[in-house]
Amino acid sequence: MRKSLHLSAFVALLLAVGTAAAGPREGEWVSYRDAYRAMVVFEKYGKPKNLIQNHYQVAAKDQSTAYDGVQLALRGKSVRINLALDATGRVTFFPLLKAAYDENAELVLSRPLGALSFRPRVSIVARADGVYEAGELRAACEQALAYQRHVDASARGKKCVGVHFAFAPKGAGVSVKLRAADSATPAGLPVLDGAAFGDGPGEGFKTVSYRFGALPDTAQVLTQDAPLAISALFE
């Protein structure tokens, strides 16, 4: 009986190791090697990327999930690091560590969040002054789309149509205005409940979408508060 239990435990261990090596899956953990490879692609990407950034994101299927206090722990034989998540589930700083890669370390959540997906997330760099030139937003969107085409062939038929600003879920008085070149008075853009990123479902954040349309590059988008995230809109 004892030998049978030992054999069962050994088989379970082999299955666990095999699953860890298989790569990302829905659950509470992911292989660091897979995350590392995905992040290195952006690091080595040689085309313009000065207006965009890349984070590793833990995305909960339940859009009401709060990431306050949640950490993604990097655990290996010689490496143990806690990685903080921002309000959108992105790792604020993702270390590229050869030792963790060689040890096939795991990225494990500090507490269960339900059904999850793990993925790199490209977004547009926010400006400290809250003033965004329409031409610069177009350029940032084009950089994001060029990178998306680099990693995903299905994006090659898409075009940039705008950008998506996300603010805190309980943000009061969110204000984003559009100032056209021929007008001294900015016009407010609609604030809606929606997902943090334009390609995601849910209504957990205050959001504003700005579509390029025919406005000249000299128009400006003005944000009163710093957005949690700015994402490109493709269609």
Rank of each mutant, 00 (worst) to 15 (best):
V163S: 04
L113K: 03
V79Q: 06
L107N: 01
A180N: 13
D182V: 10
A12M: 09
A20M: 11
T88S: 11
L74H: 00
K177L: 06
A128N: 07
F234Y: 05
A35C: 11
G204E: 05
T223N: 02
V41P: 00
R33I: 13
D86E: 11
A229L: 15
E235D: 15
I230T: 02
D129A: 08
D86I: 05
V30I: 15
V108I: 12
R121G: 05
S4V: 15
E26K: 07
A139Q: 08
S154Q: 15
P190T: 10
E28Q: 06
V11F: 09
L109C: 01
A35I: 07
P95M: 02
K3M: 12
S31K: 02
R90H: 06
V40C: 06
A21F: 11
F212L: 03
T19I: 13
V221N: 01
Y45F: 11
A214Y: 11
A219K: 00
A22I: 07
G157S: 07
A195S: 13
I230G: 00
I124C: 05
V122R: 00
G198D: 00
T19E: 13
L15Q: 08
S31M: 05
L15S: 12
L189Q: 14
F212C: 01
V131R: 14
S8H: 15
A196F: 03
A140I: 07
V17M: 07
M1P: 05
A38R: 01
R111N: 05
E28S: 05
S110M: 05
I81R: 04
G46H: 10
D102P: 10
V30S: 01
A219E: 06
S123V: 08
K47G: 10
A214E: 10
G198Q: 03
V131L: 08
A184G: 14
S4P: 00
A128I: 11
L14W: 12
Y210M: 09
A166H: 03
G194E: 03
A22R: 11
F118W: 14
S117H: 03
A115F: 00
H164M: 03
M1S: 13
V221S: 05
L85H: 02
A184M: 11
T65E: 06
A168H: 10
E26Q: 13
Y32R: 06
V30P: 00
G202R: 03
G202Y: 04
A180M: 10
R25M: 04
Y147Q: 05
Q143H: 12
A22G: 09
T65F: 04
E26N: 14
L215E: 15
E106A: 06
R179I: 10
L107S: 02
V174I: 11
E142F: 12
F212V: 00
R33N: 15
L228F: 13
V176E: 04
L109V: 01
R121K: 06
E43A: 14
S117A: 11
E133N: 08
Y45L: 13
